[in-house]
Design a protein around this nucleic acid. Structure first.
Length: 548
RNA sequence: GGCCCCGUAGUUCAAUGGAUAGAACAGGAGACUUCUAAGCUCUUGAUCGAGGUUCGAUUCCUCGCGGGGCCA
């Protein structure tokens, strides 16, 4: 690749001039500044006791010429800019296929990514959509980096929330076979638990009985509710485009975690009847692992989870995607894990994402103040159907509406840095115009629409002299993907695709493709764009429909 | 009280310590009887404050102020 060639030239010259600093080749933000740029003259100036401009001149003179580079110039405070030759872009276009953007950076690694993590008996809300969007994209970025990826989902099928839901089912005469009823039941139970002493006692009794298999009535509700929830989640995963390889449940991790904690009396300490881990010894805080009533907490369960993961699929790396509110908890849990499961602990990575906030205030499934995943998707879907009115899409319409709806939602999550909160205003934040998932899909379908008419003529030869902006952006794709994967930041891909799609749309509006002088090259270019967009959207977990 | 995250146009988001701080939405104007107008072109508009490090700070450090979260 041309990038490596330039890099090697500059490094060679730098070494020759006695510059002992890493050479970094950037993409200039402004395309007018060239295709690659380095600030080595700026960073080296002090050590060489010369002005940045003088250093740059020396370097440029020493480089001379590079094959595939037409112009090397010094600009601004001392940047060295490289302009690629026409032919270099033709080579890039020629090389774009289904594997475009992939690399072998972690080839042979086994990586498990755990995300989404909804709780049976509770609602699947937009926070879970957020975790799903980020986790799925990170999984795919890891896949593009050459690793073998397994997707895992960890769900809380035991605990007080279950008892609250069961109580609600009984009191309100709801049907545990219906996922929507469970959400209502939970909200009612949670509310009563806080405000009604009698209800609280009843719920505590249920909580104790859930694990007593002989009690048939409660267990019937439990079994019905659990499978109704899980079946409902599966429908959502199908629409969202996630297929999990592993499912872990708290009912399984709890006993395992309990055993791990009990087996390490020197690591954990007794405190008021509870078993705690004193995080202070590693600069953190104390957390309870087993309550005074002998029940394992989330902390203990997570130890069990880590061990289960490693047993079922020995991994090189396990990435957990959780909300930022859990990062304090996670670091203490991980510190404890380093002591009791050291071999596993060093392979654990935590990605914490921001919170979805309703513009009105914090969302809470306890009060029923939530936007559920399905209601949001349904709303987006109907908007999409409205936009499609008058288009001849036949019986694909419903399916396309789903992919557009999901694209809008995922894009709104993946366009910003992972750690930041998302202010979610249902009226405003999900758009189908500009800077949106559907915008990317739309650019892709337009390209396909052109190709459908004359794809057989596409050939990367006889290019027009002028290199359009979007063609100049194409070589950046693999680097963008690499960086996004390295930093677990899908938004680099999102930002890039938006820029690329915008540039393509401008070109498309200004240029006629079919039946023009450079038809075959323009078609090849359109094809290259479509492939880049398709691969990029795939990395975001967004489908690229052929028509919309 | 301790710890973590965040603060950029009216709004929602970008900007591996670099060049003129980018988009989109909203607002204003416009083109096209051309391959999908969910599109295109033009336009108004921003770095919370005070110090510090640096040739250069939205980015790093310190202290404030403001928002979110976790813990006791």
């Amino acid at each position: 690749m041309i990038r490596e060639v330039i890099q090697a030239h500059v490094e060679g010259v730098a070494k020759k001039l006695g510059i002992d600093m890493p050479v970094i080749l950037d993409f200039p933000a402004e395309l007018a500044h060239g295709d690659y740029s380095t600030n080595i003259a700026l960073t080296a100036a002090k050590a060489l006791k010369l002005s940045p401009h003088e250093v740059a001149e020396k370097i440029v003179k020493e480089i001379g010429t590079i094959e595939g580079v037409t112009k090397i110039e010094i600009a601004g405070p001392g940047f060295i800019n490289f302009h690629l030759a026409r032919e270099a872009f033709v080579d890039v276009v020629k090389g774009i296929d289904e594997r475009w953007g992939r690399n072998d950076h972690v080839k042979g690694y086994k990586v498990m990514v755990e995300y989404t993590d909804p709780n049976p008996f509770k609602q699947f809300h937009i926070g879970h959509l957020m975790s799903n969007a980020i986790g799925e994209s990170i999984s795919r970025l890891v896949d593009f980096s050459g690793a073998e990826v397994k997707r895992a989902n960890y769900q809380g099928d035991v605990g007080p929330h279950v008892a609250k839901a069961i109580w609600g089912i009984q009191k309100l005469s709801l049907d545990a076979h219906h996922a929507a009823d469970l959400g209502k039941a939970y909200a009612a139970g949670a509310e009563a638990y806080e405000n009604d002493q009698k209800a609280k006692e009843e719920i505590n009794i249920i909580n104790a009985k859930v694990y007593d298999r002989p009690d048939t009535e409660i267990n019937k509700i439990y079994d019905a509710g659990r499978s109704a929830s899980l079946a409902h989640f599966e429908e959502l995963y199908k629409v969202l485009g996630t297929k999990f390889d592993f499912y872990f449940f708290e009912s399984e991790t709890a006993p395992k975690g309990l055993a791990i904690v009990r087996a390490h009396p020197t690591v954990f300490e007794e405190s008021d009847g509870a078993v705690v881990y004193k995080g202070e010894k590693v600069g953190l805080h104390t957390r309870v692992f087993i309550t005074s009533r002998g029940l394992p907490t989330y902390e203990a369960k997570d130890l069990g989870l880590a061990e289960m993961k490693a047993e079922q699929w020995p991994f090189d790396l396990s990435i957990s995607i959780t909300a930022t509110e859990q990062s304090g908890y996670f670091s203490v849990m991980l510190a404890a894990m380093k002591e009791v499961l050291p071999d596993i602990a060093k392979k654990i990575q935590h990605v914490s994402h921001g919170m979805m906030q309703l513009s009105g205030g914090k969302m809470s499934s306890r009060t029923g103040n939530v936007v559920t995943g399905e209601s949001l998707i349904a709303e987006m879907r109907s908007q999409a159907l409205g936009k499609m009115e008058g288009r001849e899409l036949g019986d694909e319409k419903e399916k396309i509406a789903d992919t557009v709806a999901v694209a809008a939602i995922k894009y709104s999550v993946l366009k910003q840095a992972t750690g930041k909160n998302i202010i979610f205003d249902p009226e405003q934040s999900l758009s189908f115009e500009g800077d949106s998932g559907p915008y990317l899909q739309y650019a892709h379908t337009r390209a396909l629409s052109v190709l459908a008419k004359a794809v057989e003529k596409a050939e990367a030869k006889n290019p027009p002299e002028q290199v359009p902006e979007f063609e100049r952006l194409l070589p950046r794709f693999p680097d963008i993907v690499f960086r996004a994967a390295k930093e677990n930041e899908p938004h680099y891909v999102t930002t890039y695709l938006t820029q690329l799609a915008g540039a393509f749309n401008s070109w498309y509006a200004a240029e006629k493709i079919i039946g023009t002088e450079h038809e075959e090259y323009k078609l090849a270019l359109t094809k290259a764009f479509a492939q880049t967009m398709k691969n990029g959207l795939w990395l975001l977990g967004i489908q690229a429909p052929e028509r919309m």
